[in-house]
Structures are given as C-alpha cells and as structure tokens.
C-alpha cells in the first residue's frame, strides 16, 4: 500500500515528501497557499508559495514579515521530492489549485473553486490527476447557481428600485473577491460610483492596481451626507455594528450561495438575497470531479457525506478527507 501524497495536518494538507503544508492554520516552515481568504491563508509559515496573480492580495493578508515566492500558472517547482505547480481555481483573484506529483502519482488540491464566470480572475482549469481533493462547501443537489449576468442584473434592478424609493442599497458580501466581482459585473449596467466599507476599500484598490476594471468607488467616510439612492458594499459583519446607523432608510441585500435557501435569508433578516457564490455548485463539483479523470476523490471543506455517497454509487473511490474541518460559516461565501 502506497502512502498518501497529502494528509491532513497543521489545519491544512501536509506533503511529507515535499516537507510543506497546503493552507496551514498553525506554525510550519514552508507553505503553499491556495488563496488569500482567512480560512486558507494565515501568517504561520516562514516561506509561502502562491500564484503570481494572487501575490499582491496574499501579501496584503499575510503582512511584510513573510517571505512570499510567486509562481506563474503551470510553472513547475520542486519542493523536496515533490514536483509542485499552481493552476487557476477561478474562486477569487489568484486562487490556485495545487498539483503535487510524487513518484509518478499526481494529486490535485482544489482549494476553493468555482466554474462560473468571473472577470476578476483567471477561470478554473481542469487538471488531470490520480487523486482529486475537492472542496464541498455547497455539495448538495439543491445548489445550482443562476448565471452571473442574471444575478448582477438583479442587483442592478434592486439598486434602481431602492433609489427610486429614496433608499440606500446596502449590499453585504465577502470583502475579498465577491465585492470586486460585483463591482466589475455592474459595469455592464452603469458607470456610477459605489460607496465601499473600510474593509472592502483597500482590497478593491489592490484589484484595481492589477488592472481589473470595476465601477469607481469611494470610501463611506466619516462626514455626514445622504446615502439615499446610493449603493454601499460592505462585509456582513458590518450589519451588526454602529457603522450602520449613518445610512438612513436602507434596504439590505446579501450576495452569497447560501441565499438560494429561503430560510437562510429570512433567518438573518436580509431584505433581499442574491444567489452569487464563489464556490462550485453541485453540478460544478460533479462535472469537475469527472473531468479530472481522478480514480480517487477526497472531499473536504464543507459537507462531504452526500458527495462521497453519490460518487461511490457511480463507482468512484471516494471518501471524506479524514481529519479535515468542515467549516460552513455563512460569511464565508
């Protein structure tokens, strides 16, 4: 029996042959970071390998003390006995899948990924492999995403309707990735300026620095002004803070894959839910798993149980990734 190329350790996936960890959450020497979201990128390694496309946002997230080594898409680099390369995952800017080859056996870790259109990052690439480690955040057959264009148009009409009623449109979404995706998508409808929360502003500037085209933005700022008719983009955590008080009459919306389920939207009291996810939906996961040609599939990051049963029914050697944490926070998409 051959040993696994990657196994859960340090909160991420360790590669003993290459002496590195993918997305570690606890102290380690060398890491490969798939993308800059907090549940994947922490300042816990001395040396960090990431994609060139994601280097700027990863740097912003990890700080200047960490040594970052950036790699072009598909560029092969050697870590110990492992040949490693990064491939686009289409989740947020710079998000990578990690391909690891040891003794002729190829593993691919998906990180977070999606198959939907997103003008802010390089689209997902199918990487053939023997073992595919797939995320399973939305691995239930009820999750299927509408087209990005349709959802962006819904956001636009909502903004217009609120403006006509003299109200401010407060759109909550993940500050890194989702916010910029919305700001880029809305260019199809308008060139108006959008107000952004302090957590969204620097990340949006980082995207802009890399040439991503988005609507003009302005920070919400401290001085008193009317926000009637304006669109404000903010992280969900801001909805419970005093920051909310300055906006007068507000309609709130939340852009997330979780909004596909009515109860989730109502439970949180959002006026409006927009089904816009940066993760793969059920058909996306199933198609991707098939496309990789993997003979073995490990599911992590979410609810693995159903996906595993579904794949086993179809003759795929599938299992939940032992020891991986199933993080399913609503704020994570």
């Amino acid at each position: 029996m051959t040993t696994d190329v990657l196994t859960p350790a340090a909160g991420g996936l360790a590669c003993p042959a290459g002496d590195f960890v993918v997305d570690p959450l606890t102290a380690t020497t060398t890491s490969v970071v798939t993308h800059a979201h907090a549940d994947h990128a922490r300042a816990v390694a001395d040396v960090v390998h990431c994609s060139a496309e994601g280097a700027a946002v990863t740097r912003r997230r990890l700080g200047d003390a960490v040594k970052i080594i950036a790699h072009e898409w598909g560029e092969r680099f050697q870590l110990g006995d492992a040949a490693v390369s990064l491939h686009p995952a289409g989740h947020i800017r710079g998000s990578a899948q990690v391909r690891v080859e040891v003794d002729g056996v190829t593993w691919v870790v998906s990180g977070d990924y999606k198959r939907e259109e997103d003008p802010t990052c390089t689209p997902f690439e199918v990487v053939p492999c023997d073992v595919f480690v797939t995320e399973a955040t939305f691995a239930l057959p009820i999750y299927r995403w509408p087209s990005t264009a349709q959802v962006v148009e819904e956001i636009w009409s909502w903004w217009q309707a609120n403006a006509a009623a003299g109200k401010c449109s407060m759109l909550f979404c993940y500050a890194l990735g989702k916010a910029q995706r919305v700001l880029a998508g809305l260019r199809a409808h308008t060139d108006r300026s959008v107000f952004v929360h302090g957590a969204v502003s620097p990340l949006t500037e980082a995207y802009r620095d890399e040439g991503i085209q988005m609507l003009p933005t302005a920070p919400v700022g401290k001085e008193r002004r009317s926000f009637a008719g304006e669109l404000v983009v903010a992280p969900p955590s801001a909805s419970r803070s005093t920051w909310m008080r300055r906006f007068g009459a507000v309609q709130t919306g939340f852009a997330s894959g979780w909004m596909r389920v009515r109860g989730r939207r109502r439970g949180r009291g959002w006026d409006r839910g927009f089904v816009l996810s940066d993760h793969a939906d059920w058909p996306g996961i199933v198609e991707t798993v098939a496309a990789t040609g993997a003979r073995r599939v490990l599911a992590y990051h979410g609810r693995a149980d159903l996906l595993v049963a579904y794949l086993r029914d179809r003759g795929v050697d599938a299992a939940p990734l032992a020891g991986s944490t199933g993080s399913r926070s609503m704020e994570e998409d």
């Binding site: 239930l140 009820i142 299927r144 389920v261 009515r262 059920w282 159903l306 049963a309 579904y310």
Partner: peptide, 22 residues
C-alpha cells in the same frame, strides 16, 4: 439525499422545487 436536502432547507415544497430546478 432528499432527506439531507430537506433538513438543509426546512420546507418540503421548497426542497423539491430547488432539486427540480437544479
């Protein structure tokens, strides 16, 4: 699978609608 989805959604008519649409 239906039962798991139903648990996630909390409403039968909605669960079936989501499954059918997907």
């Amino acid at each position: 699978t239906f039962e798991v989805c139903y648990e996630e959604v909390g409403d039968r008519a909605e669960t079936l609608a989501l499954l059918l649409e997907a």
